[in-house]
Design a protein around this nucleic acid. Sequence first.
DNA 1: CTCTTTAAACTAATATCGTTAGTTTTATAT
DNA 2: ATATAAAACTAACGATATTAGTTTAAAGAG
Lengths: 190, 190
Amino acid sequence: MPRAGLDTQTVLTAAAEIADTKGVEELTLATLAQKLGVRSPSLYNHVHGLPGLRNKLVIYGMNQMREAMARAAIGKSKDEAVRAIAEAYLEFVRRHPGVYEATNRYPDMNDPAVQKAAGEVVEVVIQVLQAYGLKDDTAIHIVRGFRSMLHGFASIEQQGGFGIPLDLNESFRMLVDTLLAGIHALHEVK
Amino acid sequence: MPRAGLDTQTVLTAAAEIADTKGVEELTLATLAQKLGVRSPSLYNHVHGLPGLRNKLVIYGMNQMREAMARAAIGKSKDEAVRAIAEAYLEFVRRHPGVYEATNRYPDMNDPAVQKAAGEVVEVVIQVLQAYGLKDDTAIHIVRGFRSMLHGFASIEQQGGFGIPLDLNESFRMLVDTLLAGIHALHEVK
DNA sequence: CTCTTTAAACTAATATCGTTAGTTTTATAT
DNA sequence: ATATAAAACTAACGATATTAGTTTAAAGAG
């Protein structure tokens, strides 16, 4: 019996694929082991059980997200950068629904590694907002609002919560425009 | 052995209490049966297994939510009504985190009963927005944006996603104000 | 008031899952 | 070539959901 030659990275990408294709509920040690051609206890050599797997997937997802957003914002500033980040966010969720859901469902906010990964995502947005010269507290409120919009829209869309057949991209664009208008208004008052 | 005298309503409120106090992951047929002083197979007389229980809880939660929002909007109109609904939404999530999470995690959008309950929640918002005299499509876009903000903010807050120690209620108020400003802008252009 | 019937609740049993303990065996280093 | 570390395994346990079949309490019919 040859050795499977598993790697934490291999395990993780297999887990991500299961989550994205079959749904996050289907991501179990049993299905993962089967996909990797191994018995489930063997996974404990690479991951601290199911909670450990989920934790790694959360961090993996946050990093992927940060990368996608940062890439989209390269060479852009202000409104253009905000729109680019928003689009990148939504596109990521559409392409990786399972990973995104895991990110929202299983994060252990007491884990410093999770805090770090989450902070780095927020950092990308903060950097983009700096161009507007907002007061510190104001910037934080805006970041919170931006995140709320993005997460809210993406997750409602993801679970089919928008019933009516009216263009979703248009709704999303209007929502981002609303945020931008709000930023502009604040900026003028200083 | 005296009979427990269970009722679908009794089962449901017990389930809601477990979800709200212990978390939605702790809501199992086993814990629920124990809380009700009954063996878990007995629950099948009142609910179609765990999926059925979750489905009923989803509908229950949506109805509670609609009621809270509708109550908050009584006797108010326009901005005042929008703010009241937003506050009622957030307060509901804070008071009933488990039921709210169930509502987002387990909805079967193919179930007509779920569609109906979800539609009735949206209907409350639509009624309030009618006072602004928006074009039909525009109103739908706004409702989507409003829902995105509310759900996004509430669920990020719920899982401790807003790390920085800055007043959350203030962030929420600013977010709602942003939406209101967006509505006003649309209204002026007609 | 007695008898019948319906269904609430039970016991018993099964499949799946996560997890731990202990064993085998492959790859790697010495 | 041998020794070691760890990857993968088997075996076993506890918890869960679920089904089938049984008991029995409550409600209705006469």
